[in-house]
Design a binder for these strands. Structure first.
Lengths: 165, 165
DNA sequence: ATTGAAACTATGCACTC
DNA sequence: GAGTGCATAGTTTCAAT
């Protein structure tokens, strides 16, 4: 059973071919909402035998369409009730820029995107408290030599909804 | 097997109690990185019998610590290679504000956060093309009666990393 | 929490189309 | 290549301890 490898850039995880037919779409849609669906459940939904379904799912995994399986954990249960976006821009633009790698060291950084516009990167971070956010911002500034702009998240209405499948 | 229910606000999904001991932490950490880990695998890691492990996992699910299980699908495979943050603020502040609900109708909206600062909400959206992004922005403006500020995501370095467990 | 039995699920292989 | 069916190994479930 394949594990997620979330510390490497998405791009290095290999090319992803698109879904090939309705069976693939059905399997992906089901697994996206129930990552522990059994092959028999998937097989019934797809109208295929269990073996054929297994082969399909394996192919989706190997092609990188399915990147892994994860339990969705409530951040509050982990003691991380405070989330924020932190937009960062380099203080010294003439410096080698490996901010994403540097910032991956910090556990609080859940996501890192490079973006168009005023800022270079946007991070999604989760911390236990306002005090911890202050510390984190300080760390980010020194680790990556950047200026930061922080936007505190007040409420998460939804997250990780699956688009189209 | 529990299904995710991502269309309802996180807050309405019930209170989440924190993790209680190291066994819980081990189980959560494992399931967060491998959502399809078997009870025997989890049992070995936690140093418990399979049945005790099953009971633990069920409790974690019932307490809302584990909110569900999902396959991690590459958005490109779904034909959604373009992602963006869209920050929105109301055009008419004297109007009832149910933007998150209204915007949940749009499949392209993957996440919706209310935020502190200039803007009211930040959305994470995924679309097939720049043209589709233009259409989406138009839809968001009319559906929610808002002004938008869009930040295109150029690269996703990492996403959904688990913090602390 | 553990054991253990029964039901269900995953896997590989022989076979068909 | 892509599917089915079947035998076996492994997993999940639940009652009893």
């Amino acid at each position: 059973m394949p594990l997620l490898a979330l510390n490497r850039p998405v791009a290095s995880r290999g090319v992803t071919s698109p879904l090939e037919d309705d069976v693939d779409r059905t399997l992906v849609a089901l697994l996206a909402t129930d990552g522990r669906a059994t092959l028999s459940t998937l097989a019934s939904a797809a109208g295929l035998s269990v073996s054929a379904t297994q082969a399909r799912v394996r192919r989706l995994e190997q092609r990188g369409v399915i990147r892994g399986y994860a339990a969705d954990i409530d951040p509050e249960a982990l003691g991380l009730p405070l989330a924020a976006f932190i937009a960062i821009s380099p203080l010294d633009p003439a410096q080698p820029d490996d901010a994403p790698e540097q910032l991956a060291e910090l556990d609080a950084v859940e996501a890192c995107y490079s973006v168009a516009g005023e800022d270079s990167y946007v991070l999604l971070v989760r911390v236990p408290s306002p005090r911890a956010l202050e510390d984190l911002i300080r760390q980010i500034r020194s680790v990556a030599n950047v200026r930061t702009r922080t936007t505190v998240i007040l409420q998460t209405f939804y997250e990780r909804r699956l688009s189209h499948p």
